[in-house]
Design a protein around this nucleic acid. Sequence first.
DNA 1: ACAGGCTCCTGCAGGC
DNA 2: TGCCTGCAGGAGCCTG
Length: 292
Amino acid sequence: MPELPEVETIARGVKNRLRGDRIVEAWFGSRPQSFKSPPARQAKGLAGCTILDVHRTGKHIVFELGAGQAAMQPQRRQSKSAPNPPVAPDAQWIVHLGMTGRLLVTTQDSPVAPHTHARLDLASGRELRFVDPRLFGRLEFRDLRDGAATFQASGAEPLTIGAREFAEIFHRRRMPIKAALLNQSLLSGVGNIYADESLFAAGIGPRRRTNRLSAAELERLRLELRRILNHAIRLGGSSVSDYVDADGERGFFQLEHCVYQRTGEPCRRCQTPIRRIELAGRGTHYCPSCQR
DNA sequence: ACAGGCTCCTGCAGGC
DNA sequence: TGCCTGCAGGAGCCTG
């Protein structure tokens, strides 16, 4: 299940492979759940666009697109020396992987996997495919020339948020801290794994109400969350090619979880069995001794 | 405005 | 061996 570190790694991998390539034609399937904007409009908008950049915002992968040939010119002029200057995009394609969504870069003749909901034919002869068995992922196209707003995450960015803003966000709420970490309108990108792991690292019980946490505890949580996310990004980086190319989720779960899905196993710090409860509708794992 | 619960969807693990 | 049940979860929506 891709959270911030996985999405960051995938976005980097896709960017390295596809930047500068052009979408010749796009095909969309017939599962309406997958499409945040109408599939016919997405296909029409994507056709002919050049992929200028790919990056992560929250758990979303954002493709910055240039319409037609004009977008390629600045890249050609600059190709050898300095990095390309930023080019204002004409459109964006926004991919949310949900739980089971994957982006695959394949050749055009490779067999189409079940649950493939979108295929983009590329000028390089390759194909970018969106595969998503559980249909929790979403695809959206925004034509910025039509006045659509640039995509923005609803919550703050966990890797860069400062101490004051972090404290302000959580201090006003009364919900359990675990629920708050999962709330994407507060922080964007944290999912179940990293919520549990960061709370363990910070020594905070998942049921604690956010407004009852001390300033020191909130700051500890902010720093541990950032540390764990960055650590996971470093681990994920090594396996991006496997993931994007073919079948591998291999490598993405190298991260040594301390609590997540370790119910009943001994805490790595104090040997107390890890406990599992349900909180905010999610399985929640914690050490009853280390987390207060 | 906020908190919390429900729902979507399918693959897989575990039990009988 | 094969079927059935329950579980996994991101985020939008609904209710209190």
